[in-house]
């Protein structure tokens, strides 16, 4: 299951970040967003726009295509 499978307002556990683009993966890493942590899809913007997600107390925004590379497990 991937992050973009979640609906707005749903939570899951991150299994794997390794497919995410390097620059963004490094930023996640710097922010302490690591595997096995809870992730929450706060908002999906219309027309395939970016996602607003929350993990480890961080609120960030990434594109849909990046969200599709994050593997998660339903809680």
């Amino acid at each position: 299951m991937i992050l973009s499978d979640l609906k707005q307002g749903e939570k899951a556990k991150v299994i794997d970040y390794s497919n995410v683009d390097e620059l963004i993966r490094l930023r996640f890493f710097q922010l302490g967003m690591k595997e096995n942590k809870e992730i929450y899809v706060k908002r999906k913007l219309p027309f395939g726009g970016p996602y607003v997600i929350e993990s480890c107390g961080q609120c960030i925004s990434i594109r849909k295509e990046e969200a599709e590379k994050i593997k998660v497990k339903a809680k």
């Binding site: 620059l23 963004i24 970016p50 609120c59 960030i60």
Partner: peptide, 11 residues
Amino acid sequence: EKSMFFVELPP
């Protein structure tokens, strides 16, 4: 090749 987007949303 690619454009990228990442932004932190502070309170």
